[in-house]
Design a protein around this nucleic acid. Sequence first.
RNA 1: GCGCUAGUAGCUCAGUGGAUAGAGCGCAGCCCUGCGGAGGCUGAGGUCGUGGGUUCGAGCCCCGCCUAGCGCACCA
Length: 570
Amino acid sequence: MRWHTPPTFPDSPMELPLIRNDLTALVAEAVHQAQQQGVLPTLAIPDSPVERPQNPEHGDYASTLPLKLARSARMAPMAIAEAIKGRLPDSPAVGSVSVAPPGFINFTLDPGWLSNQVDEIVAHAASFGSVDYGKGERIQVEFVSANPTGPLHVGHGRGAVLGSALASLLAAAGFQVHREYYVNDTGNQIEVFQRSVWARYLQALGEDIAFPEDGYGGSYLVDLAAEVVAQEGDRYRVLGEQEGRPALTRLGMSRMMDTIRADLRDLGVHFDTWFSEASLYQDGAYETVLARLKEGGHLLEKEGAHWFQSTALGEDKDNVLVRSTGMPTYFASDIAYHYDKFERRGFPKGINVWGADHQGHVSRVKAAIAALGIDPARLQVVISQLVTLRRGNDVVRLSKRAGDIIALRDVLDEVGADACRFFFLSRSADSQMDFDLELAKRQSNENPVYYVQYAHARIASVLRNAAERGLEWSSGRSELLQHEAEQALVRKMLALPELIETAAEALAPHLLPHYAMELATTFHNFYEKCRIISEDDGPLTAARLKLAEATRVALARTLTLMGMSAPERM
RNA sequence: GCGCUAGUAGCUCAGUGGAUAGAGCGCAGCCCUGCGGAGGCUGAGGUCGUGGGUUCGAGCCCCGCCUAGCGCACCA
């Protein structure tokens, strides 16, 4: 139960250079010049990328390097700023540079250069926004990884959306991304599942037997048992408990995985590998890891069990790896799994998206892989916090009948994948969130999902309109786009590659929906202020149609990264 | 008790140590002779939980405290 699909390759490597990074380089060059000429003392320059000022009067970008340098250089920040400004190499992108107290260097982009970027954006189309931050490095993103013992719940949905958007983001940022689902198909929970399915099966055959107290009580197993009885009758009972029960369990698990895969598919989530926990025991990973830990003196035998001596590594407590019964714990599998990831398969980096209930597990796993000699910094864990489902002001309660979960399927059926994804993405993983079903399915201005998609549909409509009139805009002259609203739109689009880099670095997919809102707003503003198709100005019409197409490209890219559709009509 | 996370506008949430803390919704006004009004513009609304500290500069970093959620099994 370990199968592969072809790996995902990063987008075509024809990225636009990031103006942000160019400007940072210009500043560094100017500082270097100033140092050579003895105007600035020769000392280490702090890492100081240019930033985007919040006040537009301060230009498009600003450097605070003079402020940071003032103390160590023993110079007034304003003097440093002037020294840097005077030595900045020329750049076609930069329109003007000014120095502002107490020591900022402000850059304003050149309007002509800015409007010409529209051609670049249209030319890049679906790859617009991609950057080479990852430099093709392989990175594995592991997410969802729910047990194959029941359907996915809303919390899994959040992890699925976060993980898949993060994976897309990393791919756009130039990483070679591998998406993986770790299937916990062995161990204690499968034992419980086994007894639960068997009991439901016998009950479905009419036997009056007790359901295990710690069993999976959700109605989905009742349904599963009824299905099996309808399809195969008492075949498994005839085989007897020795043979029939494990066979039924395998069938049940496979049905559960089918359900999970269908839920994920409908949520727009796909994996390259479904990795079986059980395989770690068949291919020697588990033995290797135990032997290594033992060699390293990290194993301790106590009360018949084998413990990982994590207290010696600064952890709160030791943890059992092998129970006194000889059965390994989930923790042991997990160490073997990470060993397989980082050493056998050699992923330089891995990101795990885990639910809040696994938070205590993070430092243990890091300590364990460190004990194996793997740099724990190669593993990053994103913890996705709890979701509270609401209908308006009412909290949706868990039902015992459904197994004390709110099924992802129910939410998906009710609000649709796009709304589901947008809402899950718009809060940072760190924050607990409220998900309002009523708001998510409302088709009105209160719902941000529609606001963003509407902008895309509106542009598509204008472009259709232009096509019907036979308007040809591909040779439109973008330098005509000098209106304030037009320039603002280009500026906003150029923020996408920067956002992709920033969000990939910070593992922060929640920046995407916020950006999508801003881009949509900037477009709507342009649309109100600038008539796109005008009868009496052909050249301007062509230029604006090209701008509209560029905006559509940027919006579509953002929506795609979020795993949402970019509708031509609504 | 210990650990992790959160506390920012009425509500839901953004906010890479920098200039006057933002958005959406809600609220109050305003904008339709024309490309999709699921739109646009303006405004009111904030002791950034709290007390210290570091810094030229703190919503952001450090320490204490308060509140909430999650975790602290020979479960996963």
